[in-house]
């Protein structure tokens, strides 16, 4: 617990008032202090927060894509982000490892902390941050290299395995270690059986669903602390999807997983807590997954979940 704002003693009553307020004011962006009230920092989960965002605003030029998002993401658990298309889920995800820095038009205000350390401050080592907060993108983006090179990319770049010219010359190459990492990651991502005989083929020759799993495996191979997944199962058949869901459940034992999904059932199945974003870039409700799906506090969330709109 790094921030005093997070108070474990906040009671349900406060939460209720807050959410009614938020429904009333949903279209008006209120004053700063009201927005903190509107926030979901006081959601009481078990365990420590791994990531926390406070009053996070993102503008793309003049387009206000995220409005004062404040929430905490508990350690070693699965957090699902759901919401209609274009509501800012991917944008929020990209804030958590500062990939938004790559988009010229994007302008991020507010704060995000990782283990209590502010990641939007001067002197932050982005390379270090992204080693610790890995990401699987919405659209598969394998490198135009072999499957093996794709998986081994992260460990090689971080100096964990060395199979370069010099390592070969000096007889120090970590081929075995690399093989292990490749096999383990591909198995975790349920891709091993399909590609084990063609690890040296170009990854661009894989199908869309295979590419998606390759990107998951590639992210796991770098062994981050937090894994951000943007619709990791969008192009997968039911069998592969269920394997990925199992994987996510397993990962939650050691990793903090944040996953964006459009599939309500999936969110209900795999996540410990769920955050609902609605159009306009607001975080409307955040809490235990069971509670969100069974008795959401906001009418709008209920409508969205039951498919009335969005």
């Amino acid at each position: 617990m790094s921030e005093p704002v997070t108070s474990a003693d906040t009671e349900n009553s406060t939460q209720t008032t807050q959410s009614t307020q938020s429904t009333e004011r949903s279209t008006v962006s209120g004053e700063t202090d009201e927005r903190i009230q509107q926030s979901w920092l006081d959601y009481d989960f078990e365990g420590e927060p791994k990531l926390a965002s406070k009053e996070l605003d993102v503008h793309y030029g003049s387009d206000h894509a995220l409005k004062g998002i404040s929430m905490e993401i508990p350690k070693e658990s699965v957090t699902a982000l759901i919401g209609p298309s274009g509501c800012g889920k991917s944008t929020f995800l990209r804030c958590l490892n500062r990939m938004n820095d790559r988009i010229k038009a994007a302008n991020v205000d507010g704060s995000v902390t990782l283990d209590g350390e502010e990641i939007y401050q001067d002197g932050v080592n982005l390379v270090e941050l992204r080693k610790r907060v890995g990401m699987v993108f919405q659209a598969p983006n394998p490198f135009p290299k072999s499957i093996r090179d794709n998986i081994a990319y992260g460990p090689r770049k971080h100096g964990d395995i060395d199979t370069g010219l010099l390592a070969r010359l000096s007889g120090r190459k970590d081929q075995k270690k690399e093989d292990e990492i490749v096999e383990r990651s591909l198995k975790q991502a349920a891709l091993w059986d399909e590609v084990k005989n063609r690890l040296d083929d170009n990854a661009l020759g894989l199908s869309g669903g295979q590419q998606q799993r390759l990107c998951i495996a590639r992210c796991l191979a770098t062994d981050p602390e937090v894994i951000l997944m943007d619709e990791p199962a969008s192009a997968l058949d039911p069998i592969a999807t269920s394997k990925i869901e199992d994987l996510i459940a397993d990962l939650a034992e050691n990793y903090t997983v944040v996953v964006v999904t459009h599939n309500m059932q999936q969110a209900a199945r795999i996540s410990d807590q769920t955050a609902v974003f609605l159009t306009g870039g607001e975080l409307v409700e955040y809490g235990d997954t069971d509670k969100i799906f069974e008795s959401p506090e906001s009418q709008r969330v209920e409508d969205y979940i039951t498919g009335k709109f969005g």
């Binding site: 990939m99 992204r130 890995g134 993108f137 983006n141 394998p142 490198f143 992260g154 992210c219």
Partner: peptide, 10 residues
């Protein structure tokens, strides 16, 4: 694909 590489901490 450049984003992919950067997101892995390269």
């Amino acid at each position: 694909i450049k984003d992919g590489s950067l997101a892995m901490g390269a």
